[in-house]
């Protein structure tokens, strides 16, 4: 009940502020997320709050819920500029609609570090994220490796037109082009939604009875929906290989049971890495980087925070690493 009340009190503000009264004059950083409804953005924003600089009180983070609306994000930028934040971490909903707000902030002298999703502008101070084209390639390869060069697959996509959908589709297409004999039976959107994908897959299993060898899903929610449809129709997931992207908790558990494969997108590294880079841009580079992102991915060059793009590697989740990843998640 206390949790409820506290939550109510906080949610009356549009933003959730993590603050420390100990710090005399903390650095104020705004984190503009596209929306807090999915598990991934929850992990991302929780990771920010766990960043050592935030915990020590040197940095004050304000997380904004963009409510999946470019217009909402734009007005949140307006208020961050008015309130003179020191830097902004930006996860835009749309790769083009984000350009205006970024230029506005940059013009006002506030560095904007992109994270997770892309923004089609050269005005970003830096981008810390993962390459969705690569994710598309990896998820397609996971499935095609298993179904073989002559397999028949279905593809479940995100909302048509969103940057992640476009890029992941690009990666999938690239792999398909390399395997011309793989047959794509169906290709449709399920809007990132588990329930929608469940119904869609049920109907496909009817229309293509016994034909579907593999399911390439652009995210894990939809992959799990597909698995549930397969099980509900009395088929075995051993006969149909399913793969998704993101590495949400339910997907990790499914990997553990041998039901699917997933490509983990490291929310913690994206969030904490972006904060490290933002601090570097603000000239606090001497004590940096503070997060363990850079030790976990030795191939990722820190370069004193001066690079334009930091591509956090994707991790294929398999039997070897799923236990430890799940253990991390349980904390």
């Amino acid at each position: 009940m206390n949790k409820l009340l506290a939550g109510l009190a906080i949610s009356t503000l549009t933003a959730v502020t993590t603050t420390s009264s100990l710090a005399a004059d903390p650095i104020r950083i705004g984190a503009a997320t596209y929306g807090l409804q999915g598990e991934f953005m929850q992990l991302w924003s929780n990771a920010l709050k766990d960043h050592p600089a935030v915990k020590s009180g040197d940095v004050e983070i304000t997380v904004f819920d963009g409510r999946y609306d470019a217009l909402v994000q734009s007005s949140q930028f307006d208020s961050m500029i008015t309130r003179q934040y020191d830097a902004i971490l930006f996860v835009p909903i749309d790769a083009n609609a984000c350009v205006g707000p970024v230029i506005q902030a940059t013009t006002a002298g506030i560095p904007v570090v992109g994270s997770n999703t892309r923004c089609n502008t050269d005005q970003l101070a830096a981008f810390v994220g993962s390459d969705d084209v690569l994710a598309g390639q990896m998820v397609a390869e996971e499935v095609i490796d298993k179904v073989g060069d002559k397999g028949k697959v279905v593809i479940i996509e995100g909302p048509i037109g969103q940057s992640a959908q476009i890029d992941r589709a690009k990666g999938i297409d690239k792999v398909l082009a390399e395997h011309p004999d793989v047959k794509v039976l169906e290709r449709r959107t399920a809007n990132w939604s588990r329930a929608e994908s469940l119904s869609l897959m049920e109907n496909w299993l009817t229309a293509h009875r016994g034909e579907i060898d593999g399911v390439i899903a652009q995210n894990d929610e939809m992959a799990i929906g597909a698995i549930q449809a397969i099980q509900a129709s009395g088929l075995s997931v051993d006969d149909i290989s399913v793969a998704g992207v993101d590495g949400i908790t339910d997907a990790l558990k499914a990997v553990q049971k041998g039901q699917m494969a997933t490509i983990l997108q490291d929310a913690t590294a994206q969030a904490q890495g972006a904060l490290d880079v933002a601090l570097a841009k603000l000239g606090k580079a001497d004590e940096l980087p503070q997060s363990d992102t850079w030790t976990r991915y030795p191939d990722l060059a820190w370069n004193n925070g001066a690079s334009d793009t930091y591509n956090i590697p994707w991790t294929v989740v398999g039997n070897d690493n799923v236990e430890s990843l799940l253990a991390q998640r349980q904390q």
């Binding site: 949790k3 929850q42 339910d250």
Partner: peptide, 25 residues
């Protein structure tokens, strides 16, 4: 919707008991 997020902290609840899943499956 707000209550749902507050109650769940924005995270899904899965690993449900098989009795419960019977209601849907």
């Amino acid at each position: 919707r707000g209550l749902t997020y507050i109650y769940s902290d924005g995270m899904p609840i899965s690993s449900l008991s098989s009795h419960f899943l019977w209601l849907g499956q």
